[in-house]
Structure formats: structure tokens, C-alpha cells
Design a protein around this nucleic acid. Sequence first.
DNA 1: AAACGTGTATTAGTTATATAGTACAATATG
DNA 2: CATATTGTACTATATAACTAATACACGTTT
Lengths: 134, 134
Amino acid sequence: MWYYVDPHSGIPIYVQLKEQIKKAVATGLLAEGQQMPSVRELALQLTINPNTVAKVYQELEREGVLQTARGLGSFVAKRRKDFGPQQESSLDNALEKLMVEAYQLSVDADTLYARFTEKLAAWKDRLKKGAEGQ
Amino acid sequence: MWYYVDPHSGIPIYVQLKEQIKKAVATGLLAEGQQMPSVRELALQLTINPNTVAKVYQELEREGVLQTARGLGSFVAKRRKDFGPQQESSLDNALEKLMVEAYQLSVDADTLYARFTEKLAAWKDRLKKGAEGQ
DNA sequence: AAACGTGTATTAGTTATATAGTACAATATG
DNA sequence: CATATTGTACTATATAACTAATACACGTTT
């Protein structure tokens, strides 16, 4: 499990770390209930400030990705199961964004469809393996 | 054609405007060769600073979305046609990002597929109409 | 040449980001 | 109860990002 951040990338450190953790959770690399390294430990590993890690954990808790408690630690939360209008709308935006980006990359609709289905298949595999691991 | 920015949204104004313009170009709402409003004019309309608009135009030029010249103005560039390893990699990242987001939204693979194909169909329609318009 | 409309550069002020250091609060363990 | 470990809160400081105001440079048109 190794996170990597680059202070000179232009992207805020806390954003980089946050996205990596979200990705690790989404791919099953981090299982539900699994304990995260402590704020101080992770800060030491990445040579960044504990406050920065704390900020990441706090935001991830607000987003429902982690569950955290003083004296105990931070843990990967159980995946939310509700899919309502809020989620529907967010998904719509994400898809719209993808199409815009594909256009700029001069990807035609057929190629986009092909790459998407490939990626989706790989994704399902990874999720399946993650679920079996538990 | 009307852009809208919210200075209090937490998202930088120039990012908001940039994304809206990219989206307008990608949907054919802004046609190739079409002249953009001047830096000052757009700044006036949005009640923001001309420099902010200028920054957007500059970045969009670097990305190949606009073409700009002093004394003349800014214009929608012709769409890039090359799809190389660079673009392939960017597309891969974009798809990965979509999957991660879908996971957090508790969207299952089937629903994601369904919404994607719907959106792609709508997209093709818009592109077709945009091309006919020229 | 003059005037006008374009994008651009310079400077300044405000806000966000990151770090550091210290202290505090809650839980587990001896 | 004492101690260690966890996350949290607070203050202070430095740097970078963002926006704004003003002046400048390029090109067109009269």
C-alpha cells in the first residue's frame, strides 16, 4: 500500500493523498473495516505534516469513505448503499465531464465506447476479487 | 451562450469559466473559427477582472481549444485530430477517475453502463447537429 | 499618423495551502 | 490509576494561488 505525493506537482498535497486513498478503497485495495495508518505514522512516511494527513482523513470522513474515532484510529467505512437523486445528478455530471474531455482528446464515440467497456470489465474483476478477499 | 461564474463557490473563477467554454466547444455550441467575446467584454458581462478572462484564454490556447492574436481577438481553434499515446493515457486516467467516483456514489456496474450508453447517444446527437450547423 | 479595439505584462492585495509547534481529548492497555 | 496511542484544536509563519487595478504592446481601421 504505498501512497506517494509530490509537493512540487502543483496539485495540493492533501488532494493528491485523498484521491489515492479513494482510489484504493474503490478498487478494493483497502477493504471495509481495515485500519488506516495513524495520522502521525502516515505523515512520517510521506514526509509531510500530520495536519495535512488529518485534513485528508477529516474530509474523507465527511464523504463517508472513512470512519474515525479518537484514541482508536481511522478505518475504511462500509460502502454507502443508497443511490438517490443526489447520486444520480453527480453521476450525470461525471459522465458529462468525461465526454468533454474525450472530445478534447480527439477520441471518437466508438473508441470511447470501446475503452469504456474494457475498463468497466477490468473494474468488475477487481471489485470481485476485493469482495472475495473479505 | 451564457456563461455563469460564482465567486463564492470555492472553485476558482477561471476554472469555472474554462470548463464552461470547453464544454461549449465540445458540444458544438461554439463552432470552429467562431470569434470569442473580447477579454474586456466577457469580463464586463461576468463582472470579473479582465485578467481572469485573459488567463482562461491563455490556458485554452495552450490546450489547443482557442487561437488568439493581439489586436485581432480569440477564436475557436480547429479540433485536433491526432490520437496518440499521450491522449490514450489521458483517456485512461479519465475513465479510472469515473470508476472511482461511481464507486463512491454506490453505482453498480450495470447502472453505470446504462447511464454511459444513454449519455453517449445524446452526445453523438449533439455533435451531429453541431457539424450540420456549419 | 491617429484612434480604437485587441491581448499582454506588471504590480499589489487577499485568500488558500502547507508547515511547525504545542496542547488537548478520547480510548485502550498495563 | 497511569501511560501510551489515537485524532483534534489552536496559533503562528511562509509560500503560492487567485483576483484586481493599471499601464503597455500589437494590429486594424479611419
